[in-house]
């Protein structure tokens, strides 16, 4: 299937917007419940950054689509089959170890992506990426340090973190999977081919995992489906909660 650049921008911005929004939502669930006060504040900062990125990407998606949908219309009025986030980020928090490993696997990808998007010839894309890049560089530093602390902490923390890594690893393949939108933008030179991010991502992950004294899981079978709207059961609950008010009061302005 070939699509034009505007359609591709819509699809790509939706993928990044949804991924940022869902991950930001998951992190925001920690607010008031983190293991220590300082970390509560740190996680919320990252959640705020991610929801901020989501707003920018969804607004760009709405413009590219040209149907008059704004950030809220896109965030609050689409059902699961229209969401385009990676399955990784909708996985539940479970415990702090899962949250941190999920975050690190995503952050390491986001840094690679935004570094390349920051030099995109499309000014809209480059602008969002340049702003987000500063933030995700801090995110990956934060999450990598925690992976190391937990992996190389106590026997308990090591076991929990390894378990999280094993459980979440099969969700990492999707981040590098091309879809019609990303392929079209890569062909137009607006975005990198996502497969090209894999080598540097893998190297960063390998370094951190080694320093954390953890074992990098083998690349076996990988989960897929988020890019075509086939999600895990978790996303439905997340959206039900997030979208409750605009759905219950469809005529209201908040």
């Amino acid at each position: 299937m070939t699509i034009d650049t505007q359609q591709a921008l819509f699809g790509f911005a939706l993928r990044l917007g949804d991924t940022s929004l869902v991950l930001g939502h998951r992190l925001s669930e920690w607010c008031g419940h983190a293991p220590e006060l300082e970390e509560d504040i740190a996680l919320t900062n990252i959640a705020l950054d991610l929801v901020g990125h989501a707003r920018l990407w969804l607004s760009l998606a709405g413009e590219a689509e040209g149907q008059g949908r704004d950030e809220d219309r896109l965030a609050y009025r689409r059902d699961v089959f229209d969401y385009r986030n990676h399955l990784l980020v909708e996985q539940p928090n479970r415990d702090f170890g899962h949250t941190i490993v999920r975050q690190f696997l995503h952050d390491a990808w986001a840094v690679e992506l935004y570094e390349r998007l920051a030099t995109s010839p499309d000014a809209g894309v480059a602008g969002i990426a340049a702003k987000a890049l500063k933030e995700v560089r801090y995110h990956v530093q934060h999450s990598a340090e925690w992976v190391i602390r937990l992996g190389d902490g106590t026997a308990v923390s090591h076991a929990k973190t390894q378990e999280a890594l094993d459980r979440l690893w099969p969700y990492t393949g999707e981040m590098f999977e091309a879809d019609a939108a990303s392929s079209a933008l890569a062909a137009a030179g607006i975005a990198p081919a996502l497969a090209d991010l894999r080598a540097t991502w893998a190297a960063r992950v390998a370094d951190t995992v080694a320093e954390a004294t953890l074992t990098r899981p083998a690349d076996g079978w990988m989960h897929k489906g988020g890019l075509r709207g086939e999600h895990s059961e978790h996303l439905g609950y997340l959206l039900a909660e997030m979208q409750f008010l605009p759905r219950a009061y469809p005529d209201a302005v908040w």
């Binding site: 300082e38 970390e39 504040i41 740190a42 900062n45 801090y138 340090e145 602390r149």
Partner: peptide, 8 residues
């Protein structure tokens, strides 16, 4: 961690 926390 203190530097990161101070930033946040």
């Amino acid at each position: 961690m203190a530097l990161g926390n101070a930033r946040d």
